[in-house]
Amino acid sequence: MRRRNTLISAIRRTTVTAAVFATLAGGLVGCGQGTGESAAPGPAGTSTAPNPKETLLAAVPDETRPGFSYTIRDWETTLTGEVAPAVKSIHLRTSFKDPELGFTMHMAYLTVDKEAWARINFTETEGLTGLPKLPNKWMRLDPTKLTDDDSLPTEYDGADVASLKPVLANTTIVQSASGNYRGTVDLSGPAAADILSEETIAGIGDGAKTLPFQATVDVDGRLTTFVVKVPAVGKTKAYDYSVTYGDYGKAPAVAAPTDAVPAPALAYELLNG
């Protein structure tokens, strides 16, 4: 895996200065594919039940999956989009409402193999001046003009958009019943960067080693939901970090835009913070 930040991290680090934009700050998609190995067969005439942890790991989206949609949520950010592993492409969308000025910034990213585009627009801007004038089209990104391209999605980086493979590898207890899984996950180590900010991890302390989670898998062995219960830290109330997958084989197609324009300098000022 090349990038450790999740999509939420990538969007949040895109800062917008006070008088003109807004700030998306904080900490959370990455990659990592593969399937879990099945348990070794028992003696003749018997069968060994699949290991729940291995089954859950194997359910995480990988390059063999058909296209699907996803939603990733934490206490303040929601990302939605589609993934098409067959053509190495990811589409993601999010919106941020400025609590003081009242406008909403809508951001979208699209990656197809080693190319990337962004789209940014503003709504609810009545009475406001000074907002940036950006093309109302997909803007083709030049990674060399991004000051920290490892934290923004500049190329396809695998079907595991929520970086759940390394997270689920740290589960310590997994119980299952009819496609429903629950247990605890250790988010005190490196994999936690894909779920929690450093401040949150420090605030939780030792409790980060045994955070409760729930997950569901469909009848075809594909992950559909993953939820971690995050306790209150400082002024942040307890919340659910959740990932939802769906529309396997039915999600809208993800393709390179045909009318994209080169991203202007102002777009890079936004993306570089």
Rank of each mutant, 00 (worst) to 15 (best):
F213R: 02
E76D: 15
L134P: 13
G183C: 01
K97Y: 01
T200L: 12
A265P: 07
V161I: 15
S69Q: 13
T55S: 05
L164D: 10
I204D: 05
A253R: 08
D240H: 10
G189C: 01
P190R: 02
R119E: 04
D206M: 08
W117C: 06
G183K: 01
I173E: 14
T224F: 09
V83R: 07
G81R: 02
D218Y: 08
P257K: 00
V112A: 05
F213Y: 09
A256C: 04
S188E: 04
P264R: 00
N5A: 15
A260S: 15
D160Y: 02
G27D: 14
I11G: 10
T78L: 05
L211I: 03
V254Q: 03
V161C: 05
V227H: 00
A265R: 10
S69M: 07
T144K: 12
L211E: 06
L110Q: 08
P143R: 04
L141C: 05
K133T: 15
V20K: 13
Y181G: 01
Y241K: 10
T144N: 08
H106F: 10
R119P: 03
F21R: 12
L266N: 11
G207W: 03
T80L: 00
G102A: 06
A84M: 09
T154R: 12
L128F: 06
V174I: 06
E54R: 05
T154V: 15
A202F: 01
G36S: 03
N170E: 14
T225Q: 06
P257C: 05
S163M: 11
D194L: 10
T23Q: 10
L57Y: 01
S242F: 03
Q214N: 15
D220G: 02
F21W: 14
V87W: 02
A19W: 14
S69R: 15
T35N: 08
R4F: 13
S38M: 11
M105K: 11
I195E: 04
G246I: 04
Y70M: 11
T104E: 13
L168C: 02
K114D: 12
T14M: 14
A238T: 12
G203F: 07
G207C: 04
A267Y: 04
G102R: 12
I90Y: 03
T129I: 09
L168V: 11
E269I: 11
T147Q: 11
P85I: 02
T35F: 05
H106S: 08
T172F: 00
W138A: 07
T200G: 00
P61H: 03
D98N: 15
G26E: 12
F96G: 05
T123E: 15
V112K: 13
G27N: 13
G42W: 13
K88V: 06
P166T: 11
K250Y: 06
W117S: 03
V254P: 08
V261G: 08
R4M: 10
P264N: 03
A44C: 04
V29W: 09
A169P: 00
V29P: 13
K137H: 12
Y70L: 12
A19Y: 14
A267P: 07
T244G: 01
V20G: 13
L134Q: 09
A260W: 10
F21V: 10
V228T: 14
P252D: 08
E82P: 07
D206G: 07
L110F: 01
W75L: 08
N136C: 01
W117I: 05
P52K: 00
T244A: 10
R13H: 14
P190L: 05
F68M: 13
I120G: 09
Y109Q: 08
A260K: 06
I90V: 15
Y70T: 06
T144V: 07
D218I: 06
A267K: 11
